[in-house]
């Protein structure tokens, strides 16, 4: 198995994914993903994965896309600004790349668009300043962290921003797996040893191996060619963790995809979060639709110190 070429691994992964995920895929609507109603589609991607790794039950309560905000716009602008920074010789600073990308987006905004261009155009200068700072920070953190780990900054390249999304569609079903690629490094070689590394920015530092397995699997399925490596860039820690993309990693990624698919389906077929693992956390529970009836949340709320990693004494401090 280990001497397969990246293309052979890709072919194997696509066939195996279709077979392995068939039982969950069969529970979605038949036909093409694009033809299915929004409420019937199952999209397995980074956001659902990180939610699942934090609290499985919360996946069953996730709603669909609820519009653009500064947090979603940050990554959109960050990726495109990164693209401009490395591809436009006239743009020599990250901030200039962000400003020019933002200005072009606003200038080209279509009226009545529900895309990020119209959202950006509607914002006040102060919100735009914050957005520019956040997007610039995203690019700078990516470059700085990988550079500190012996990656040559000049060899880091952004994902193709205007190309097709990095997706793998389960055959004849309303289900897809989407890869998150924040940057690429090294050279792709479909036939032999590939040094291509997919870089993914990771904030959830306790579950890095799982995120890498999912993204390594998803990229392989989307492109049909296994990258040599997948690496988590963790600016919070100033660290990078890299793993080889092989059959074992893809298998591990598929196990996660299978679990995620089941949780996503629960929100559509009425099974809900009954019997699913629950885990309370400060930010996770804040916007969760399940919180009002969630035992884990109630328990954590009764002992708020747990959120900070402390337990309160059962009794008030005795007078000494």
């Amino acid at each position: 198995m280990t001497d397969r070429s990246p293309r052979e691994i890709g072919q194997y992964a696509r066939e195996w994914a279709a077979e392995r995920l068939a039982p969950v895929a069969m529970q979605t609507a038949p036909g093409r993903y694009g033809d299915a109603d929004d409420s019937e589609r199952v999209r397995l991607a980074n956001f659902g994965l990180t939610t699942m790794l934090d609290c499985e039950a919360r996946v069953t309560g996730l709603g669909g896309f609820d519009g653009w905000d500064i947090f979603k716009a940050t990554r959109w602008l960050g990726v495109r600004s990164f693209h401009r920074y490395v591809s436009d010789d006239g743009v020599t600073t990250v901030q200039r790349a962000v400003r020019s990308t933002m200005a072009n987006t606003i200038d080209d905004a279509k009226p009545d668009s529900d895309f990020v261009d119209a959202w950006m155009k509607d914002q006040t200068p102060a919100v735009r300043a914050l957005l520019a700072a956040r997007a610039g920070g995203w690019v700078a953190s990516l470059l700085e962290t990988v550079r500190d780990h012996d990656y040559e900054a000049e060899a880091i390249r952004p994902p193709p921003v205007d190309g097709p999304p990095m997706r793998f569609y389960l055959p004849d079903r309303a289900m897809l797996i989407e890869a998150r690629v924040d940057a690429l490094y090294g050279r792709r070689n479909p036939k032999g040893q590939s040094s291509e590394t997919v870089l993914v920015m990771v904030n959830a530092v306790g579950v890095v191996d799982e995120i890498l397995a999912f993204e390594g699997m998803a990229t392989t399925l989307a492109t049909g060619i296994a990258p040599g490596f997948v690496a988590a860039v963790m600016p919070k820690l100033g660290a990078v963790k890299k793993m080889a993309v092989d059959i074992a990693l893809i298998e591990r990624g598929l196990v996660l995809a299978e679990r995620l698919a089941d949780l996503e389906l629960r929100s559509k077929d009425g099974r809900g979060a009954a019997g699913v693992q629950r885990s309370a956390s400060f930010f996770g529970c804040k916007d969760c639709s399940l919180s009002p009836d969630c035992g884990a949340f109630a328990e954590a709320q009764a002992r708020p110190a747990l959120f900070g990693g402390l337990q309160q004494p059962d009794q008030p401090a005795p007078a000494s």
Binding site: T93, Q95, A133, R134, V139, A140, S141
Partner: peptide, 10 residues
């Protein structure tokens, strides 16, 4: 302008 400002950096 060549300094990058990262707000709320954790």
């Amino acid at each position: 302008q060549d300094w990058v400002v990262r707000p709320q950096f954790t």
